[in-house]
Amino acid sequence: MVSKKVKITNELGIHARPATKLVRIASSGKSQVSLIKDNQRANAQSILGVMLLEAISGSSIIIEVEGEDEEMVLEKLVRLINNNFEED
C-alpha cells in the first residue's frame, strides 16, 4: 500500500467536477483507492462519497492506494490535485 498527503488548492475545493475527474482516475486502474480527510474515509470510486468529504481549498487529504498498479494511480491522483484538477 502507498499513501500520500496532499493539499487541495483549487478555488472551491472538491466540488462536483473535480470529484468526477478524481473518481474517473481512481476507477481507471486495478487498485483500491481511499481518501481520508480528518477522521472521514471515502472510497475514491464512489462519487457521492468523495463529494461528501467537503474538502475545501486549503484542506489536506490523504490518498491511500492498494493494488498492483498503486504507484501509477497514486502519481496520477497527486498530479491531478496539484494541478488544481485542471480547472480553467
Binding site: 475545493g13 472538491i14 466540488h15 462536483a16 467537503e54 475545501i56 486549503g58
Partner: peptide, 20 residues
C-alpha cells in the same frame, strides 16, 4: 437532481471556506 446536489455542495464548500 445532479444540479441540485451540485448547488448544495457548492454552497457548503463556500460557507466552510468563508469561515476558515
Amino acid at each position: 437532481a445532479a444540479q441540485d446536489l451540485n448547488r448544495k455542495l457548492n454552497a457548503r464548500l463556500r460557507d466552510k471556506t468563508r469561515i476558515v
